[in-house]
Design a protein around this nucleic acid. Structure first.
Lengths: 219, 219
DNA sequence: ATTTCTTGAAATCTCGAAATTTCTGAGTCA
DNA sequence: TGACTCAGAAATTTCGAGATTTCAAGAAAT
């Protein structure tokens, strides 16, 4: 079993509480490996901001704060809007097709959740499909760096919202919003795409806080 | 001595060739520590893209490519323009003062380099002051995440351009461009700021490649 | 000549013990 | 009570040896 990948999944999907201490000596029991191997995984996660690390004081989960959620959401809007628009310019029909496919897969899972409720199995599939949808959205933007930064921010976003996600409270909205993004892609209108992406995240922003630049124009 | 910080500096400032293999067993000699400690540092650096890591195959420096340089520069323009404009809106006089101070420090070092040539000592001071200037530019943007992503991209940029930097070929241009950015900050005109930032990086973009969105508007 | 196999050497990874640092709380003093 | 000290416990970090995997070079096979 890949210790790093598994801990990463757990750290992103909310299996630890915000601010919880992460002890290598404890986690090793879940994997039957040495504490060093766990430590190694935690160090790598700390380098991308999914775990906090203090010298001689070990590792903990990042604390939750509304400001942090707002900031990360804000960044995600910026990167995702820019990436999606570039994909629209460079992606062509192939990209539209792949986006449709990813959306189809995602919405299929979402309707199953709507019908059967959120089982662990379905929640896990949803996480994978949601990431794939948003990554496909940026996949034709032509910038490796943009996609890397997006993935980092995406993971932090998922981590911050993990407990909310599991309840699937906004499932119906999500389905509608994802569809609206696909429609915008087909329409070829970048301003509409930016607007749709903004609307998809709007409820996770703090209402009284200034929203910047291009993002303000979407509102 | 802090092994991680020192290796990070060396990896950023071009003390290893592009694509060069980084062996923990070799590097340990420079620090008088065990290979595990070096390995730990390299793993953390690989998590932020400053070193490449392949399982069971160790670490190497990233390969150079024009595309990579273009992509990283592109991203830096985007993040820095956005951050600078937000700082203009939220920073107030305090920010302008700090930006002036940082610029003053930087230009002082730059003129010394112009006079005495680039000694190792001066090159090191320049690296620090240049980072501080660009970080100050974003320091009032109000987004931790934006600044973190910028630092990551800034480091990669420095790494890609490390060998060129050491020659200080564009020193005169740099002095002029940094001054222009400070002037734009004082002027309060965001469009001008975006333009000045674009001009500061323009020569590191590939000429025949499409430049996107807000960036195109700056050109 | 090219591919496949073998084998020894080299590089990488894992591990638990030892060294170091931080944390805890009982005891002391004002 | 409150601040301070200090020792023992707990947590963290470092380390080098042993296990595993990759690499390289020559032999055998097609």
């Amino acid at each position: 079993m890949d210790v790093f990948e598994d801990i990463k999944t757990r750290v992103i999907s909310g299996q630890f509480a915000h601010g919880e201490k992460l002890r290598a000596e404890v986690l090793r029991n879940d994997y039957g490996c040495s504490a060093s191997t766990v430590r190694e995984a935690l160090l790598r996660l700390s380098a991308v901001g999914l775990v906090e690390f203090q010298e001689q004081r070990g590792f903990r989960m990042p604390e939750y704060s509304e400001e942090r959620q707002h900031d990360i959401t804000h960044m995600r809007i910026m990167l995702e809007a820019e990436g999606a628009c570039r994909s629209m310019r460079h992606g062509g029909v192939g990209w539209e097709a792949r986006l449709n496919a990813a959306h189809h897969k995602l919405s299929h899972i979402e309707s199953r959740i709507g019908a059967m409720g959120p089982t662990d199995e379905l929640a896990h599939l949803w996480m994978e499909a949601e990431l794939e949808f948003h990554q496909t959205l940026l996949s034709a933007c032509g910038s490796e760096t943009l996609m890397e930064m997006h993935l980092q921010v995406y993971n932090r976003y998922r981590q911050v919202k993990a407990d909310v996600d599991r309840s699937f409270f906004h499932l119906a909205d999500n389905i509608r919003e994802h569809q609206a993004i696909v429609n915008a892609a087909v329409s070829g209108d970048e301003a509409i795409m930016r607007k749709r992406i903004f609307e998809h995240f709007e409820r996770h922003l703090m209402p009284d806080r200034p929203v910047d630049t291009a993002i303000a124009a979407m509102a």
